[in-house]
Amino acid sequence: MDSAKKISISRRSVLKAGAVATFVLATGITPTMVKADTAQDTPKNPNQIGFMYDQNKCINCKMCAMACKETNNWEEGTEWRRVIVGGKDNKYYLSYSCNHCEDPACASVCPVLAYKKRDKDGIVIHNPDVCVGCKYCMYACPYHVPDFSTATGRINKCHFCYERQDNGEKPACVSKCPTGALSFGVLSELRKAAGATAQLEGMPSPDLTKPSWVLIPKA
């Protein structure tokens, strides 16, 4: 066995392989080039519904979150709807819950198929009875919507009050909003509102999951 020859061949091939690998790695750092249609495009499902939130009308009373909590009996440690405060002089508010995305990242990563996107209206419903509590969806959702309850060991999130809606009622949060800041409807219609957008500054690009929400930022 000519060991010197063996070594020189392996060294050369290692260098070669290294150069090729370096190139491949350098070009391969970006696996997801987001070149999707913009979130303002017509929804794939024409019956997709969504929330609309008008930042000009919100007074931070948190009636929406309280109504949601009462109606849906949030499991301990979960928040289905939140009202957050920020911006200049902390005078900007945002009430948000699940955006019932066109491409829900939660549903695509969930190993046990606990998430279902309804054909009827595009509501993304999570079934806690089959959730194993792996928390993968908590990383996947750019909006931090799925919450884990340590008390029950499973995820909870907003389901757009689908049972109320099936009975012809409004979602609890919308029904209790005193100023009309929070409303809901067919997404393609909501998007026609003046000043409508799907992204606030500093928030995730709507290209990630195509959220079914309409925001009217404070003018």
Binding site: S108, P111, V112, L113, V132, G133, I155
Partner: peptide
């Protein structure tokens, strides 16, 4: 897992989502 010891029979469902 939140349900690992609580409802272990649910773990069978881990085989369900071939896209995950």
């Amino acid at each position: 897992l939140g349900q690992g010891l609580y409802k272990p029979w649910l773990l069978f469902r881990l085989l369900f989502n071939l896209g995950s």
